[in-house]
Design a protein around this nucleic acid. Structure first.
Lengths: 157, 157
DNA sequence: TCCGATATCTAACATGGCAAAGTAATATCC
DNA sequence: GGATATTACTTTGCCATGTTAGATATCGGA
């Protein structure tokens, strides 16, 4: 690990200009990093809940279905996560008078506070590990952020 | 959508030289990509099982504990996943005569075949999405592979 | 009015993490 | 040699979070 992308061995055909080896490494690494991050609960909130909290902040007032689409998960997942956030008082679900099938989701003051707190203390795991990387590696990571974002942009589905 | 908490406009203090904004974007994106990849089941095999299959291929003959360390998960997780792979005939677990507490894990011919098949057909999701990126983005991603690998290198824990 | 479409929730299930406890083999110490 | 500790793995039980299928309520147009 930590080595440069190897030169494609003989017979490592490439698709769309990328060697199978690199594709595999990319896929494996991304999957694993996601797992590590997801298990990294900075606070009491799991990754899924934190992600949802931020999505609500960005989109509020918002319907559950839009949150599901935004997070790229199914509505039932959002429903359950929302219930958790509501239970602990971070999120508010109010009836929408204009369409009573939906509800209006928003952060409570406690939710907003929690969000800011997470934002400040969030960087623990990631920044700690980033600090162990060389400057070149960090630069490469930062340079790849837009590509990573585009990769999981649901608009590209 | 692919946007992330564009948080602190002003006063975006940096930790270890990286802005909070970038850290947040990185974390959110990596977590999400991992989720997407994980749900992307090439074949009947889940991400965790495919990952394990490849790890066995790389390390065989190998002990279960080493696989756990390599995958960065706990021994019980590996045991369960191994049992699944053994059940479907892709993996062999044999007693180690030199130390009967451990067992020697290796791929069966069917496992090796499956692995090659996955390798060939693996490129579905990732390469398809990569092909929608600009050349610069792809280059940035490839350049970031070593950094990504180092980020989740268990040796850095 | 009625009926299909829409938005959400409930229920049931699968996966895959974990920690704690159990089991068996090996190593150590007197 | 035999008691004890350590090691390696498995089993068990729990939790979080994803899914799909089906129920329910509402909306909106023919």
């Amino acid at each position: 690990m930590g080595t440069l992308p190897r030169e494609p061995a003989a017979g490592d055909e490439s698709i769309s200009g990328i060697s199978q080896t690199d594709l595999t490494r990319l896929r494996m690494t991304l999957g694993r990093l996601g797992r590590v991050l997801r298990q990294q609960n900075d606070d009491g909130l799991s990754y899924a809940l934190v992600s949802l909290l931020f999505a609500i902040h960005r989109m509020q007032p918002v319907a559950a279905g839009d949150l599901a689409a935004s997070e790229g998960v199914s509505p039932p997942s959002v429903t359950r996560s929302l219930n958790r956030l509501i239970d602990i008082g971070l999120v508010l679900r109010l009836a929408d008078p204009s369409d009573r099938r939906t509800a209006v989701i928003s952060l409570t003051p406690a939710g907003e506070l929690e969000r800011q707190q997470i934002l400040r203390s969030r960087e623990n795991w990631l920044s700690e590990h980033l600090s162990r990387l060389g400057g070149d590696d960090v630069a490469a990571l930062l340079a790849a952020i837009p590509a990573l974002e585009q990769l999981c942009d649901p608009a590209l589905e």
